[in-house]
Simulated scan of single mutants.
Amino acid sequence: MTTSRRSRSAGGGGCDHQRDHRLPITSAARLIGTSRSIVLASSNHFRYAISFGGLMKPSERIDRRYSDDDGRVVPWTEAEARLAAAELAWVVTVRPDGRPHATPMVPVFHDRKVYFHTGSKEVKYANLRTNPHVLVLAGDTAWEQGLDVAIEGTAVPVTDDALLQKLAELYRARWDGRWQLDIKDGAIVSDLPDSEVVAFEVTPNRAFSHSKGDPFSQTNYRL
C-alpha cells in the first residue's frame, strides 16, 4: 500500500520538497518578510486567505490525485521560504520553435517574485525576447524528505535603478558573497565582452509544491 501511494504521488511529475529542512518561522520571516492575514476558509484540502498591509495571499489546494490520503496542504509561506532559501534553481524557457531549454541559475526571491540575471548572448535571453513564459524549479533529488516548488510565470527585464540596487544587495548575501553586481543608470554593469547582463523579474501566476516523505502531497496555488 505504501509503495502504491508513493508511485501515485510521483506520478504527478512533482518536485521534491523537504519538510525536514523547512526554515524556522523567524528565518522565513527574515527571508520573505511578514504580513498579517485572515484565513477565510481552511481544511486539509483547501486554504484561502486575504492579507491587509501586504499582498493578497494565494489560494492553497491539495491535489488528491498526487497525494496520500493523510497528506496536508503546504502553506504558501513554506513554499516561499523554500524559494527564498534555494541556492540554485532551474529556469525553463521556450525556444522559438517550441522546444524547451533548461538551465541552472542563482535566484533571489523578493516580494513574491523570482529574479535572475543572464548575459544577452545566452540562449535563455534569446528565448525570453520572443516568449516571456517561464517555469522556475527549486528542490532536490531526495525521495523520503524534501519540499520541491515549481512556479509558472512571466519574465520581464528589470530596468528600475532602485530595484536593481535592491537585487544587488540580495545577491551579495548569496552563497559566500561572490555575487557582486554593480548597478549604473538602470542596468547591471557588464564585464562580459560584447554582452550585456540583464536581470529578469518572474511574476508567478500559478505554482505547485510537492512534499516528500510519508505522507506525500501536492499543493496547488493560484497567485
Rank of each mutant, 00 (worst) to 15 (best):
M1W: 00
T2L: 05
S4M: 07
R5I: 02
S7K: 08
S7L: 12
R8G: 05
A10K: 07
G11L: 07
G14M: 09
G14D: 04
D16P: 05
R19H: 09
D20M: 08
H21T: 12
R22S: 14
L23W: 04
I25A: 14
I25G: 09
S27I: 06
A28T: 10
R30T: 10
G33K: 10
V39E: 10
V39Y: 00
A41S: 06
S42R: 08
S43C: 00
S51R: 11
F52S: 12
L55Q: 13
E60G: 07
I62M: 15
R64C: 11
R65N: 13
D68K: 02
D69A: 07
D70W: 09
G71E: 04
G71L: 04
R72H: 12
V73H: 13
V73I: 14
E78Y: 10
R82M: 13
L83E: 03
V91S: 06
V92S: 13
T93S: 15
R95Q: 14
R99A: 15
R99V: 11
H101T: 03
A102I: 08
P104D: 05
M105R: 05
V108L: 11
H110S: 14
R112N: 14
R112T: 11
Y115C: 13
T118L: 06
G119T: 04
G119F: 01
E122W: 00
V123L: 04
K124A: 00
A126V: 09
L128E: 11
L128G: 07
L128R: 10
T130C: 12
N131M: 11
P132V: 14
V134L: 13
L137T: 15
D140L: 04
T141M: 04
T141N: 07
E144Y: 07
G146A: 05
L147Y: 03
L147W: 06
L147H: 06
D148A: 15
V149K: 07
A150P: 04
T154V: 15
V156H: 10
P157H: 03
V158L: 08
D161Y: 00
A162Q: 13
L164T: 02
Q165W: 00
Q165T: 11
L167V: 09
L167D: 05
L167K: 02
A168I: 03
R172S: 14
A173W: 12
W175Q: 12
D176H: 11
G177Y: 05
R178P: 00
D182C: 00
D182N: 07
I183P: 06
K184R: 09
G186H: 02
A187T: 01
I188V: 09
V189Y: 00
L192T: 01
E196A: 04
E196C: 01
V198Q: 01
V202Q: 03
V202W: 01
R206P: 02
R206K: 08
H210F: 12
H210S: 15
S211T: 05
K212A: 11
K212Y: 06
D214H: 10
D214W: 06
F216E: 03
S217T: 09
Q218D: 12
N220T: 13
N220A: 15
N220P: 00
Y221I: 11
R222Y: 03
